[in-house]
Design a protein around this nucleic acid. Structure first.
Lengths: 193, 193
DNA sequence: TGCACTTGCCTAACTCGATTAGGCAAATTA
DNA sequence: TAATTTGCCTAATCGAGTTAGGCAAGTGCA
């Protein structure tokens, strides 16, 4: 090692670097060992700043959830109906495409208390907020919330897993048409069965 | 160790046990070490039957994809339209709820050649087969295929991650209403926009 | 400015998983 | 029963995760 003094590790800095690392090599590979390597530091040195590997991943997940919630809330502010729906969806998808590691982190299974205190609850609130423009009564609103969550996370999950690449038509086309379809669907919800 | 002779390891047996192990402790935890423990065998002994840990996971994934494709094709045979749609969807969801580890395995990223030779292609074919009843022209059919894949994998993913538990209404209710909504949507696709 | 105090990062050590090479005994075949 | 195959073991290496304790680089106070 060439370094003399200290590099200035902090929990904050580790988590940010961990998020970038995740985007580069995948969330699973965003490990204490690799992170230490990047800081030019011994692995053991991280343990004053994060409890353990699981704690590191949890903190990266929380960071991702916050970033995503911030971006979504900015995009959705002042919009309603289809406009809000597509804004939400596009922010979500763009975030995942630009930050695949963080997006994967955002799906990380948090223990219930951590999840309850996370930005995950803002996501749920914002999804419901979008549906305000569609006037759905309960329990239909909840069903619709679950549908939207499923489509967004499912589509983006498949897309980042490479499911739609190298095949026509373009993924962007499908995305647009799916959002149109969802808008129509929400306007005529609930279904007559 | 109490055992005297040999336990009779085979690739086949390892993969089956690995699938069960995955259902019990999670796909990520379905590791050579744990598998060896269950067979009362040293870890090194597995390496005559599987190349390495990644190979084991790949083989579990292929098993899951086959099982799922078999069950789906049985359920969908002789059905059309909404009937086929719900049969497909229910088999898919039931499999995931009964075999969470295998289901997770089925999402395991396979390298392109392995994927191309896997039962994954049957899944794609069957999804398209379902849409036959809805008479969609390309490129709309592909958009619809992608929507269905997204909803199914997304919903089941969120549900098995615990997203819908402990909150009313029941997940089953949402699932039913969502399938109804999808049926309606497919019958009126493409969207006017 | 100098000192005590705090603390960041290190070394040392251990555990455990993955993996390879080589050996012996149990199964198989003749 | 002898010869051959091969299943599972021992031994050994490597790397990740983790803990305990030490020293020096930073901080704050006189």
């Amino acid at each position: 090692m060439v370094r003399v003094g200290r590099v200035g590790l902090t929990t904050e800095r580790l988590v940010r670097a961990g998020a970038e690392l995740a985007d580069e090599v995948g969330f699973e590979q965003a490990t204490p060992a690799e992170l230490a390597r990047r800081f030019g530091v011994k692995t053991a040195s991280l343990y004053s700043h994060v409890k353990n590997a699981h704690d590191l991943k949890t903190k990266i997940a929380l960071l991702a959830l916050e970033e995503l919630a911030d971006q979504v809330s900015t995009a959705v502010a002042g919009r309603a109906g289809k406009d809000a729906l597509t804004a939400f969806a596009n922010v979500y998808r763009d975030y995942a495409l630009k930050h695949p590691g963080r997006f994967a982190a955002a799906q990380f299974r948090l223990d219930p208390q951590t999840a309850a205190a996370s930005a995950g609850v803002r996501h749920a609130q914002m999804t419901r907020a979008i549906l305000r423009g569609y006037n759905l009564a309960e329990p239909h609103q909840t069903h619709a919330v679950r549908l939207l969550g499923s489509v967004f996370s499912g589509y983006v999950g498949l897309e980042t897993a490479g499911g739609f690449s190298h095949s026509a038509p373009d993924s962007q086309e499908s995305w647009t048409e799916i959002l149109n379809a969802l808008d129509t669907l929400l306007r005529t919800w609930p279904t007559t069965s």
